[in-house]
Amino acid sequence: MNVSVDFCGLKFPNPTVVASGYLGVTGASLARCVEHGSGGVTSKTLFLEPRKGHPNPTVLTFQGGVINAVGLSGEGVKNAKHEFEVYADRCPDNPMIASIGGATIEELIECAEIMNEYPIDMLELNFSCPNVHDEMGRPFACDPQMTADATAAIRKVTKKPISVKLSPNVANIGVIAKQAEANGADALTVVNTMGPGMLIDIDMRRPILSNKVGGVSGHALKPIALRCVYECYQNVKIPIIATGGIIQAKDAIEMLMAGGSLLGIGSALIYYDMAAFDKITDGIRDFMKKEGINDIEELVGMAHGDMIDHSKLDQNPD
């Protein structure tokens, strides 16, 4: 049975990748995720220069999942080479997807050019963070033309595979996905957090996040993310990293069936900690065994289509 994934020419031993923003501040932290079962990793989004991000509270959980307004803190692409070197040295068989962001296309270009010299396998373009509106305005991924322009600009300066991270906060994600594909994206990451949303502490009579609003993820995001993955899969040929509320193996299988090839794992870490990766991969394997599926590839996009061939369901029931 095969659960490894070929993605843009990169080999992932299993479909789980650490989602950007989780445990991605240091190379050692991401290497530890691999030691606990993740197939690959995504580093935390870096801008060109260091950023402090928002004051705390920045990350909170609530009944429906997670809300965050970290504010894209990071040491800056310029200063982060050593983190990628630490990771590449320890995890040569687990691709590193480096997430970059920028307030302008020029900044993104500079980030991508510097990244050309770093030991990374793929670039993820974070065009979709919802919690820095005050500072940067609407994210690129909320507009088809801006997505097209930014993708095309970065395509010109790098030979590394590019995945464009899309926003769920749009009416036309399929159109935006097509624009990314047409302008040189090798893959899509679907999706970023939704919202922004808010939590209020009624005793304090104030929003809890210092930024007041933040991106919503986890359980609440999953049905939205699933629909976004399904819609993108219908609209593009390039492969998809599905992310948004994958907590258990069942969520992961739904995401694969909607059209994701890789699975970005984030909030599952809050509920299952480092066991999340193995728990999800093992659950996918169990399902494949039960259903008589030999290659994980067969699951990708399986939910698309009309009539079901009942003879293929549940081939090895318990």
Partner: peptide, 11 residues
């Protein structure tokens, strides 16, 4: 930042 092992800030 988070205090519960998600953000990776204190690694």
């Amino acid at each position: 930042k988070c205090g519960f092992g998600a953000c990776g800030q204190c690694c």
